[in-house]
């Protein structure tokens, strides 16, 4: 669960608008840094890698609501700045196909861009430290660490949203008693069109009580994602290790070209280094 599958209208407006603002800031910075790469080369490269991530995301593992992401691979291939641009494109196209909310595109961009940057950096550092022959275990461990970090980011976002999320039980139908009731008896002002309740004038105890009633259940959410998540992390780690291992074998320049990783075996002579 590397990115947010939270529907539109659940998170408070200030959170998703803030996410959009931060994402645009990141895009501006990434475009400036990305301009160092020739745009004729950068544009098709971002396009191809983003399309690859989108194709992999279209394959879903139903029982745990997980799909392969390949974001760590994208981070290795693109680096952090072009990766941030790719993250925005992937999230936007997915949202336009109904997968993930439009309002959470900004937050999702931040999460996936972090995933690409952290994953790419960990794989590069690991490959330098342990050598290119150990690319599979390095990729697998890096992927698990990255996904654990970004899942924590996701839990953090839900925790920030907390009681401010528009999750009130304000339906006219009470699902427990199956009776119609009036949840607006507190008056129009208390409704709060785009955010949570306006609890002005309440004591702290009353406020805390209301927060428990309506907010997202952060503890339960964390418990579920940290229970289901590791299955996904493991799957993603296996796929990432498999793909990077395969590419490292058949076309190593794609992965190690930009990394400048010295081979751990003698470059010249036979397998024992004899000339």
């Amino acid at each position: 669960m590397s990115h947010i599958h939270i529907p539109d209208g659940v998170l408070p407006w200030w959170l998703w608008l803030g996410g959009w603002a931060l994402a645009f800031g990141l895009l501006a910075l990434a475009s400036r840094e990305g301009a160092r790469v020739e745009s004729r080369r950068a544009v098709p490269l971002i396009g191809a890698v983003s399309a690859l991530v989108l194709v992999s995301m279209a394959t879903e593992i139903v029982p745990i609501a997980y799909h392969v992401n390949l974001t760590v691979i994208a981070g290795v291939l693109l680096g952090p700045w072009l990766g941030a641009i790719s993250a925005f494109i992937v999230v936007l196209v997915l949202a336009l196909l109904g997968h993930g909310g439009i309002t959470v595109v900004g937050l999702n961009t931040l999460v996936i861009a972090s995933e690409m940057a952290i994953g790419g950096a960990l794989v590069r550092t690991g490959a330098r430290a342990f050598g290119r022959t150990r690319i599979r275990p390095v990729a697998a461990v890096s992927t698990v660490v990255t996904l654990a970090l970004t899942t924590t980011m996701l839990v953090g976002i839900v925790a920030i949203a907390g009681a401010g999320a528009a999750t009130r039980e304000t339906g006219a139908l009470d699902a427990e008693t199956l009776e119609f009731r009036n949840p607006f008896s507190g008056g129009v002002v208390s409704v709060g069109l785009l955010g949570g309740h306006d609890h002005e004038g309440e004591t702290e105890e009353e406020h805390a009580e209301h927060a428990d009633e309506g907010g997202l259940s952060v503890g339960r959410f964390a418990a579920v994602v940290y229970t289901l998540g590791p299955l996904g992390w493991l799957l993603e780690a296996l796929v990432t290790a498999g793909v990077l291992g395969y590419v490292a074998r058949v076309r190593p320049s794609l992965i190690f070209g930009a990394m400048r990783v010295e081979p751990q075996y003698p470059r010249y002579g036979d397998e024992h280094g004899r000339h």
Binding site: V62, A65, E176, L216
Partner: peptide
């Protein structure tokens, strides 16, 4: 997206409604 929303609803929603 209903599939993913179901998981999110199960994980974070305070009630069935």
């Amino acid at each position: 997206p209903a599939l993913f929303a179901l998981v999110f609803a199960f994980a974070a929603a305070p009630g069935p409604a």
